[in-house]
Nucleic acid binder design. Sequence first.
DNA 1: ATAATATGCAACTAAATGGTTGCCTATTCA
DNA 2: TGAATAGGCAACCATTTAGTTGCATATTAT
Lengths: 107, 107
Amino acid sequence: MSMDAVFKALGDPSRRELLDRLHARNGQTLGELCEGQDMTRQAVTKHLGILEDANLVVTRKRGREKLHYLNPVPIHEVADRWISKYERSRLRALSDLKKQFEGKTEN
Amino acid sequence: MSMDAVFKALGDPSRRELLDRLHARNGQTLGELCEGQDMTRQAVTKHLGILEDANLVVTRKRGREKLHYLNPVPIHEVADRWISKYERSRLRALSDLKKQFEGKTEN
DNA sequence: ATAATATGCAACTAAATGGTTGCCTATTCA
DNA sequence: TGAATAGGCAACCATTTAGTTGCATATTAT
């Protein structure tokens, strides 16, 4: 369960959209997740595979179809072990920026 | 300032390490950020360029050297506009998982 | 003035990535 | 039983990516 795999998985917009879809409705089949997508089913399968490898998605078979469920744990860990570190020192970093760049515009 | 650029930038471990270094000590020069790195200065420059494009890092010239500062805003936005959505429904998703997979182990 | 230092820029390369097509298997429905 | 549906798997392709080497420029130190 490497954090790197999670970050990599989140680095692609198609995959984030798949997560968003599952967030909107959990437990969808592959077919459902393909609807209205402008890539082939096989491409979607690959993306879902990467999400599964990162443990962001967990699947279950029901007959001939495959159900996809969101696993909130890895995102929580990213929030907790990585993002939060930067959030804690946020105001400090902002004041550093002001100090260094006051008066300067980026044009 | 697209969120996609931020996610992409965070998707590489070398770039996250650069951010971590700046988090540990803000305002480092390119040379300093290269110390102990097992890639060339030019490779580091490219990574820093991607971080700059994503607005995660802001730079300033001091004589012949370039100082690098962390910009906490994009990470905050990711936390606020993306991560938090999943954090809110976290317990719900966990109970979904339990419901679907109780009794099953992944071995 | 010269040498050393700090960085910039461009061309090139290997490997990873995101996508495709084609075909096969398993389950369900009529 | 046969057709339709849901998905799996492998080979292939184009582009992007992460890195390199080589050289140029600007600033500082002697």
